[in-house]
Structures are given as structure tokens and as C-alpha cells.
């Protein structure tokens, strides 16, 4: 940390939101202080390995298993949630959450340097244009004050920051559009064996809903994990993935560890 005691901006929380805000601000010449309540063990490769060891030696490998809470930053656990009784979600005695109301938060988050993307799944779907006008279209929910087209440049920026793997042609469904020359930074993740089988088996199948028949389509999901860089990205300039913290030679590709939640062993789906 610089020896300044005055900053242009103070950001509370070193999750993906705080980190990107800090990056944007410092690039524009502002000085920024980030305050993080949780432990800062995501800076060094060796420290990250201790998270991995915590995961290996947990008997219940929950999302927060690798990331023990510190006294100053307690955090929710998936085991705090005891299911739903008579429409009311139940929480364990002494659990982090104190929630009232009809729709409670049923997941967790991580209070550590790096925040919840330490154990997120990496799913990076865009919303459908129709999602923004549900009220008008379907008389349900609410209309948004912005629409899909307003968000397009931000989706692009986020997809670059995260290094999303997907195929534009495959993602252009149900009204989703892309700028004419746009490609995702990385090619789509090869689909799994079971996805391919499902694709094969549903090829000629249809399902009926409300009197209308529909085809099935089995597509891959845009992913914040590393496949192969797309050389066509950024008008042919290509994209170079960022490797693991302190060891950029690993984490360039997903290695099939199958532990994305809670911890990528090679850090390729972790934001840093």
C-alpha cells in the first residue's frame, strides 16, 4: 500500500465489483483504497494452495469449505440452510443469516480477498431482451428502466474481464443479439459427452406447451473458464488468458478438475 493517507476513492469489499471499479478508476488516474474485511490469502500461489488443502481435508465440501471465515468477517454457510417448511425457509441456530420476509437468500457468499468469484460457477449468460419487459409482454414481474441494447457494451466489457468462453452463433437465441463482428474472447468449452448424447437423442423430439410444439435445443453455456483463446477476438488481435496468481504458466486452460465450485485447482475460473 502506498504511504498516502488521502485517497480519491475508498472501495469497501475486494470482490469482483470492487476490483473492477478500482481498475477502472486507477486507469483514469484516481488513487483508490480498497478495504476488505476477510483474509487476504489470494495474493500468493502458496497461500492459494492452503485453500486447496482445506478443500481436500473437509468432510463436507461446501462452497465455503476452502475459505475459512475470520473473526472480523463471518460468512454464511450452505449448511445453515435447513430447507423450506410451509413456504418458509429455515436456518440453523446461530447461522450467519437473519432473514425475514417471503423470499430469502438461499445461497452463500465468500468474505475473503477475491470475494464470491473464488467459488462461483462461472456461468456467464446474457439476459434475454424480453427479460427487460416482462410486465409489458407477459403481465408478470416488472419492466426494467433499461433494455438489452443499453447493456450490450457492458456485457462486452464483462466478457473481456472474465475471459468468457462461448460461441456467438450458438448464443444468438430467443432474441439475443451481438454486434456484427463480435466474438467471445475464448471459443466455446467443448460440450460434455452427456450433452452430446442429449443433443443426439432429442434431435427429432418435440415437447408441447400450451398447445404449441417446440423443438429441443441443447446448447453450451457461456463460461468464465478457460477453453482455447479465439484468434478472431478484438478484430483479429486475439485474446490471451491470465494464468494463476503468482504462477501464470498454469491455469491457461480448464483441466477438468470438476471442482469449480468451490475451488478451481488451477485458478482458471477465479477472478484475480
Amino acid at each position: 500500500m502506498a504511504k498516502e493517507d488521502k485517497f480519491d476513492v475508498v472501495i469497501v469489499g475486494a470482490g469482483i465489483t470492487g476490483a473492477i471499479a478500482a481498475k477502472e478508476l486507477t486507469e483514469q488516474g484516481f488513487s483508490v483504497l480498497i478495504l476488505e474485511a476477510g483474509a487476504g490469502k489470494s495474493f500468493k500461489f502458496e497461500d492459494y494452495q492452503t485453500y486447496l488443502d482445506n478443500y481436500y481435508t473437509s468432510t463436507v465440501r461446501t462452497p465455503n469449505a476452502p475459505f475459512p471465515a475470520t473473526a472480523g468477517a463471518p460468512q454464511p454457510l450452505i449448511t445453515d440452510q435447513l430447507g423450506i417448511e410451509n413456504g418458509i425457509p429455515q436456518f440453523a441456530e446461530g447461522s450467519y443469516f437473519h432473514q425475514v420476509g417471503p423470499s430469502t437468500y438461499q445461497s452463500t457468499y465468500t468474505r475473503q480477498m477475491g470475494g464470491t468469484t473464488l467459488h462461483w460457477l462461472g456461468t456467464c449468460l446474457r439476459m434475454l431482451p424480453s427479460d427487460f419487459s416482462e410486465k409489458t409482454l407477459y403481465n408478470s414481474g416488472k419492466d426494467w428502466p433499461i433494455n438489452y441494447y443499453d447493456l450490450m457494451p457492458y456485457y462486452r466489457a464483462a466478457e473481456l474481464e472474465i475471459g468468457v468462453s462461448a460461441d456467438v452463433d450458438e448464443q444468438a437465441f430467443l432474441g439475443i443479439e451481438f454486434e456484427p463482428s463480435y466474438v467471445y474472447p475464448m471459443n466455446k468449452v467443448p460440450q460434455s459427452y452427456s450433452d452430446l448424447k442429449l443433443q443426439e437423442w432429442t434431435k427429432y423430439a418435440q415437447f408441447k406447451y400450451d398447445g404449441t410444439s417446440y423443438d429441443y435445443s441443447v446448447v453450451s453455456v457461456p463460461q468464465g473458464r478457460n477453453s482455447t483463446p479465439n484468434p478472431a477476438y478484438n478484430n483479429g488481435k486475439g485474446y490471451v488468458p491470465v494464468g494463476a496468481v503468482g504462477n501464470p504458466d498454469i491455469g491457461q486452460r480448464c483441466e477438468g478438475n470438476a471442482a469449480c465450485v468451490p475451488i478451481c485447482s488451477v485458478q482458471e475460473n477465479t477472478m484475480h
Binding site: Y56, T57, Q191, S227, E255, G256, N257, A259, S265
Partner: peptide
């Protein structure tokens, strides 16, 4: 120990690998 998890036979008996270790490699899920 962490090795005890990584080497445990249940994964091998299932023809799989322990999640988070002994990674089968890029694209093997296909």
C-alpha cells in the same frame, strides 16, 4: 490427510477422479 482424500479408492472404483485433483485434462469431459 489431503493425500488420503486424493488417493481414496472410491473415485477409482467409479472410474472417475477426486474432484479438485488428478485432473483428467482439457476436453476429456467429451
Amino acid at each position: 490427510s489431503k493425500e488420503a482424500y486424493i488417493e481414496s479408492f472410491s473415485f477409482r472404483a467409479a472410474g472417475s477422479h477426486p474432484a479438485g485433483a488428478k485432473q483428467p485434462g482439457y476436453g476429456t469431459w467429451q
